[in-house]
């Protein structure tokens, strides 16, 4: 699709312990930002990077079982799984986010991977979304990723799937995955509604049209959001109630 002659702008968050022995050769369209551990990357920050205008994000960490912080790379894997779901919901190709886990015995240099990823992004071309749609969707995704519900679930995934929860149950991975799917979707829609009603008060019908959902599904989310204090009734126009977003903490 791309007729763009510019190579895509890519940012690469890199673990302090990956590719650290030799001088790295970095392609000029790639920026490397070092962090302590790749698990340290806040999911919201990754989405923020897309909003700011980067076309691809690569996360580079160490291959399990080696991690300077025991299991930071596994945390990163979980975060990326969730982020890809969010990106897909927002209408952006999940391939734009890549997690690369390299062993300390890695044969190939960083530039090899960076080039490979660049080409992949170049092939994807520009984002399929229009500018304002892109901002709206990605902001909603970012806010969903900064909110309590997703983060708690993400933070507890290991505990829930590998060990026991408070009731002595162990959740199978597939079950957790399905649960995560549901929660990610619900959270994304709620924050999309929040974003849309922040611009101007809207009715359920209008929101349903923009989101491509059945009005009753939207209403259910709105009821839920009202209970949480995310949204409130603004006014009633004729017989149609209009909702407006409230400031969330």
């Amino acid at each position: 699709m791309s007729q763009d002659s510019h190579p895509p702008r890519i940012v690469c968050f890199m673990c302090n312990w990956a590719f650290c022995e030799e001088e790295m050769r970095i392609p000029y369209n790639v920026d490397v930002i070092r962090v302590m551990c790749i698990g340290r990357m806040d999911p919201a920050l990754v989405l923020e990077t897309f909003i700011k205008g980067f076309e691809g994000v690569m996360l580079v960490g160490c291959k399990p079982p080696d991690c300077h912080f025991v299991d930071g790379n596994l945390h990163a894997e979980r975060a990326v799984k969730m982020l890809k779901k969010l990106l897909a919901l927002a209408g952006l190709e999940p391939e734009r986010l890549k997690l690369l886990l390299v062993a300390p015995l890695e044969e190939r240099a960083f530039s090899h991977y960076a080039k490979e990823f660049s080409e992949e992004i170049w092939r994807l071309g520009n984002s399929p979304l229009k500018k304002d749609e892109f901002i709206a969707n990605l902001t909603a995704a970012k806010e969903a990723a900064s909110a309590f519900r997703l983060r708690v679930l993400l933070g507890r995934e290991e505990e829930l799937t590998e060990f026991m929860n408070a009731y002595g149950e162990k959740i199978p991975e597939e079950e957790f995955d399905a649960l995560l799917d549901d929660v990610v979707k619900a959270e994304y829609i709620r924050y999309k509604i929040h974003y849309l009603t922040r611009i101007k008060p809207r009715s359920v019908k209008e929101l349903a049209q923009i989101l491509g959902l059945k009005p009753f599904a939207v209403l259910r989310h709105i009821t839920n959001m009202r209970r949480k204090g995310m949204i409130a009734l603004d006014r009633v126009e004729g017989y149609t109630p209009l909702y407006k977003a409230l400031e969330v903490r």
Binding site: V35, M36, C37, G39, R40, G72, H75, F148, R151
Partner: peptide
């Protein structure tokens, strides 16, 4: 100072001093 907690804190109550 790995920052894993700061990356996951649901209320973003934890932040790192430096990074």
């Amino acid at each position: 100072g790995c920052g894993l907690c700061a990356a996951r804190c649901p209320e973003r109550a934890i932040s790192m001093q430096k990074l």
